[in-house]
């Protein structure tokens, strides 16, 4: 699934990475605990989270995650967005809660990884 499709399905805003929306996302992983993400998430995944701090982007960077989706209208600050830009990780923001966001993506064919 492309990031563009995810954006459309979740009615999400693109806070960084408009030029990268054609990238492919293979899996999704959702958690507010970054240690769980580090333990289980696959590369080329999207990370769905309600946690909003720079370590979310750092975690995504280490795992080669291509896209972070902030749920519940969490808006990352400029430091977080600057780090995402530096690491070329697309940042989406949706008004859906985590359960609903995951449900929409899953029912449209995006699966969890390992």
């Amino acid at each position: 699934m492309t990031i563009e499709r995810i954006k459309n399905l979740l009615d999400a805003d693109v806070l960084y990475g408009n030029e990268c929306l054609d990238r492919e996302v293979r899996y999704a992983f959702s958690s507010d605990m970054m240690s769980d993400v580090l333990a289980y998430a696959d590369e080329h995944s999207a990370l769905i989270t309600g946690l909003c701090n720079p370590q979310v982007v750092r975690t995504a960077e280490m795992l080669d995650i291509v896209c972070i989706i902030f749920v519940r209208n969490k808006i990352p600050d400029q430091n977080i967005l600057a780090l995402a830009e530096d690491k070329e990780i697309v940042i989406l923001c949706t008004g859906h809660g985590m359960f609903t966001a995951c449900g929409i993506l899953y029912s449209n064919g995006l699966l969890g990884g390992a």
């Binding site: 507010d32 605990m33 970054m34 240690s35 769980d36 580090l38 333990a39 946690l51 701090n53 370590q55 979310v56 975690t59």
Partner: peptide
């Protein structure tokens, strides 16, 4: 620390993994 997304008791196990 948990509020920051860490302290789930996965750090050392992850490092070993």
């Amino acid at each position: 620390v948990r509020a920051l997304g860490f302290g789930a008791g996965m750090g050392l196990p992850n490092m070993k993994k």
